[in-house]
Amino acid sequence: MLIARPKKPLARATIIGLLLLITVICSIVSIGIGAIRIAPLEVITALFDSSGSLNARIIQELRLPRILVALICGALFAVSGAVLQGVVRNPLASPDLVGVGAGAGVFAVITLILLPSAPSWFLPVGAFIGAWLGFALVLLLAQKNNEIAPVRVALIGIAVGAALGAVQQLILVRAPDDIGRALTFLAGTVYGADWSRVERLLPWLALLPVAWFLAYKLDVLAFSDDVASGLGMRLMLARVVCMSVAVALAAAAVTGVGVLGFVGLLAPHAARLLVGSSHVFLIPTSGLLGAILVVCADALGRGLIPPIEVPAGILTTLIGAPYFLFLMRQQGRIS
């Protein structure tokens, strides 16, 4: 991993506390942004206002669920990325690398275009199934002699992603009209998130502590294979369990905000710069950074050129792509 100086636990705990604070502040400010601007202090009073005033209704019914969806999905994507980077032992890994993004994309497009009359809840279900199928395909192709080599996962993940992306393009090109929804979903957006979506996502939050419990295993997986097995780690089992948790996290996030690019790559990497590579600290830090990133991207998207909304996914990609290039250069310099 790139830069990972040993850090004192206290300093790392402080960083996590600060990030928590920043998350709350960003959320409150972000709630105030939109067609009607509301000052942060008014946001706080309106949150607990049960009188049914206009501001209270705008915030409680429209903006709060949207921010919550952004927070939850940002954290899910980011933790998924942190776990995957650990398993694959590569800071350039992200949920898209194991076929999650591509699988979800293809299935979302298929459900939208081949089954136009399907109810709206069908799109996230399709994406969820697609994410797992994409992952299964990568796993199937990457395993050899009942072992999974991280390098193979990375390379095959890229190939599968490209192949599924082509399928998706093919369907989109052949598709006649209603591809707007599909494109928005593929770009990733928090637009239109309501309380039912928040409720649908809530159970998946239970996976965050699960990922955190895997921290010690992920630390051991960071050693070379023979060291990890020598310590009594069952590599194949540990890798499949960790990857499955990561895929479940990302697949759930996809159902909330679509294929939101680069959060799963960016957040864990930035987290590693802040708290080092010990996963006990890395996982919560990533989650918070991911939440902050998506909330800010969404707020920016709403505030830049109102009333037009720029999808959050486009903004995260705009930040993410140059950062990714920067990372590749850095990595190339070191190795």
Binding site: M1, L2, I3, A4, R5, P6, Y216, D219, V220, A222, F223, S224, D226, V227, G230, L231, G232, M233, G276, S277, S278
Partner: peptide, 25 residues
Amino acid sequence: AILPQTPTAPEGITVEALVRFGRYP
């Protein structure tokens, strides 16, 4: 316990943290 020929550890790990992993089993 086995010490392989070219073991690799996570970057930045301290000696004490490394030794601590020996307790994993």
